[in-house]
């Protein structure tokens, strides 16, 4: 069982998918000889050739638009968007074509396209490199949106995303690319957790904390700190944003009576609000406190020197936990 950084786990997952299915292609900027700016595709062009690992022109609409055409011809393109804030030139193709062609054609066209997007902050970078735009994609019917928080999930979820007959937006937590974790590579796709299931990653009886992507580790750190004060947090890794596995969170909330949702994206109009509404609908009589959200502010992502104030940290999570318990 190898111990891999999250970026290398995705690399291994891509390699396995490409070995299994010759129709799997990788497309993106600098993903070939360079191996991608985060080195996620390192070595793949050398081993699979330029016809399957394409260094593309620097045009995101072109990457996604031609991926659609390749998918129509029977291929399974995996597109790397270099950074989160660079996805917008492709937004038209994603929203008006990729997401809708299946419905437009009454199910006659299949678009097994994966968009890999590094997201989230905390790496001290410049504008457009640290954003969390997942809610924009979750709002679009026809897309699936997932994000791994660990190396093991990264390895399996990328393969599940590639195997999906629907387009999948696969958000990769930038600041966790170097986090190492054990990856059970001997299992099969059928053995591991389904792509669209959340997972309770720490048991606790007092407050449920739901997180995904980069904030899962944060929630676990908050749980460690809270435990020192005698507060037991139950941490749920959502893993999937569209669809949202509300049932797993609801089951937890029925036991704890409290929910705090943590993400880096602005809370306004975000995934936390959606989860809060659905948990309130399902668990109204189990809730001991209002569902609280901890996340980014309704602002353009700030310059790196203040991002630690913009991003939720352990203290802001614990503050929300305290407010929930005080209610």
């Amino acid at each position: 069982m190898p111990n891999l950084p999250l970026a290398k786990a995705i690399n291994a997952g891509l390699r396995t998918a490409m070995e299994r299915d010759p129709k799997v292609l990788l497309m993106g900027e600098d993903i070939g000889r360079l191996g991608g700016v985060f080195r996620v595709t390192e070595g793949l062009q050398k081993d699979f050739g330029e016809a399957r690992v394409l260094d593309t022109p620097l045009a995101e609409a072109g990457i996604v638009g031609t991926a659609i055409g390749l998918a129509l011809r029977g291929y399974r393109p995996v597109c790397e968007i270099q950074f989160n804030g660079f996805v917008y030139p492709a937004f038209n193709q994603i929203v008006t074509q990729l997401a809708k062609l299946r419905a437009r054609s009454q199910g006659r066209l299949e678009l097994p396209v994966v968009l890999r997007i590094p997201f989230g902050g905390g790496i001290g970078s410049v504008e457009h490199h640290s954003e969390s735009p997942e809610a924009l994609f979750a709002h679009v019917s026809g897309l699936r949106v997932v994000t791994p928080a660990t190396s093991a999930d990264a390895y399996w979820m990328i393969q599940q995303a590639i195997a999906s007959p629907d387009p999948v937006v696969f958000f990769e937590p930038e600041r966790r690319y170097w986090d190492k974790g054990q990856v059970e590579t001997d299992a099969t796709l059928a053995d591991v957790a389904p792509l669209h299931r959340a997972r309770v990653v720490r048991r606790g009886e007092h407050v449920t904390v739901a997180a995904y992507g980069p904030t899962v580790r944060l929630a676990l750190e908050a749980a460690e700190a809270a435990a020192e004060d005698g507060t037991q947090l139950e941490v749920v890794d959502l893993r999937t944003i569209s669809p949202l596995d509300v049932g797993t969170v609801a089951e937890s909330v029925r036991r704890t009576g409290r929910l705090v949702v943590v993400h880096e994206a602005p809370t306004f109009g975000g995934v936390g609000g959606e989860l809060a509404a659905r948990i309130t609908e399902r668990c109204f009589y189990s809730l001991e406190a209002p569902v609280l959200r901890v996340g980014g502010f309704h602002l353009p992502y700030p310059a790196a020197r203040v991002e630690e104030h913009y991003l939720p940290g352990v203290d802001r999570v614990l503050d929300a936990v305290d407010r929930s318990l005080a209610a």
Binding site: I68, G69, R73
Partner: peptide
Amino acid sequence: AQLLPAVGCAMGV
């Protein structure tokens, strides 16, 4: 918006 998919289809060909 149909043109890039057309080009991609041709790349598949």
